[in-house]
């Protein structure tokens, strides 16, 4: 029995890793395609039918680039930077519930790598380590622009983590649990958290844009001011790792958004499907629904990128500290009052 669970989890972890990588790969193509479409262009369409092989060509190009090291004192940290970024981008997926359990050959297979009861805190912990990837990389580059980019990224991520955490507090007050699988299961059918926590969702959304360093908060790599930001000195696949980590964390943060607020694998009419077509079909359909939601959020990230211009640094700080944090605190207070008012029956 124990051996079986190791094999089961092993296969699951490899599958999740592969899916994350695949998503990150094709996000690079999707980004270019969507950018093109939003600008009335066609986008890359030469490598393979419709440009489907473009990510491979990009990867190959990065691999064949010169491996450059700046005159830095600490090569180890220089290599550490992209590695930490990549690791933290991938680690979060461990606690994501990808679906309700599947019944395969008489065994209940839980579609979650590990169900720890402080799942949200784990996600936040890993997210805050992500700052180190950028900070160490920028510092070890021994370059003013890299350091300035890294400083901006670090201060931005730390500021927005506060508001993000506060928006989650309101959510956990409702769900009474920090475990992601409980939160996912609690949003059965149509009872998605976004309907009960619209303000919290908005704050979380804005903060996840800041956490993933995406436009309009991509000050870290503000080309006009900082050349390339923290990855100015990086080349070849180390550069590729930074870019790849950004796309991987975009996938993960879309997943977290979908799980926390958009009902994870739940969809209206899931009970009907379960009664008529069996639990496995309902569960597989749920996985599909989750991935549709994830794809929507990824598209939303790109949509925003080609709509909203970059914030100025002081605007960014003002938005984070003077608007989002008070709003998040107000959200907590209002949520608390409402829970008290409805006698703890708001969501149970």
């Amino acid at each position: 029995m124990d051996q079986a669970i190791i094999i089961e989890k092993g296969i699951f972890i490899v599958a999740i890793f592969a899916i994350t990588m695949l998503f990150a790969m094709y996000e690079t193509l999707a980004e270019r395609k969507i950018a093109a479409w939003l600008q009335d262009r066609i986008g890359p369409n030469r490598a393979g039918p419709g440009g489907i092989l473009q990510p491979l060509a990009d990867g190959l190009k990065l691999f064949s680039k010169e491996e450059f090291f700046p005159a830095t004192q600490n090569r180890f940290l220089f290599i550490c930077g992209p590695a930490i970024s990549m690791i933290t981008a991938l680690m979060t997926s461990a606690v994501i519930p990808w679906g309700s359990s599947l019944n395969i050959m008489g065994r209940d297979v839980v579609l979650q790598a590990t169900d720890i009861n402080i799942g949200i805190l784990y996600v936040f912990g890993v997210l805050s380590i992500g700052v180190y990837g950028i900070m160490i990389g920028g510092w070890a580059s021994n370059n003013k622009f890299s350091l300035m980019g890294a400083m901006r990224a670090a201060s931005q991520m730390i500021s927005y983590e506060v508001a993000m955490g506060l928006s989650i507090i309101a959510l956990t007050m409702m769900t009474q649990s920090l475990s992601l699988s409980d939160i996912a299961a609690g949003q059965h059918g149509w009872r998605w958290n976004v309907l009960y926590q619209p303000v919290g969702f908005l704050i979380f959304l804005v903060c996840s844009f800041a956490e993933t360093n995406r436009t309009p908060f991509d000050l870290a790599e503000c080309e006009a001011e900082l050349i390339g930001g923290y990855h100015t000195e990086y080349s070849s696949m180390k550069m590729g790792f930074y870019l790849f980590a950004e796309y991987a964390s975009m996938f993960i943060s879309s997943t977290v958004l979908a799980v926390l607020y958009f009902g994870a694998y739940n969809y209206p009419g899931m009970d009907w499907v379960k009664d008529n077509a069996g639990a496995n079909i309902a569960s597989i359909l749920g996985i599909g629904v989750l991935f549709i939601k994830i794809c929507f959020f990824i598209f939303f990230y790109m949509w925003i990128r080609w709509t909203v211009p970059r914030f100025r640094y002081d605007q960014l700080m003002k938005l984070g500290w003077k608007m989002l944090i008070p709003l998040a605190i107000a959200n907590i207070v209002v949520t608390g009052i409402l829970i008290l008012f409805f006698d703890n029956n708001l969501h149970l």
């Binding site: 479409w37 939003l38 009335d40 066609i42």
Partner: peptide, 11 residues
């Protein structure tokens, strides 16, 4: 921007 997604491409 979403309107531009469906306009005719000039390329």
């Amino acid at each position: 921007t979403i309107k531009h997604l469906f306009t005719r491409k000039v390329t």
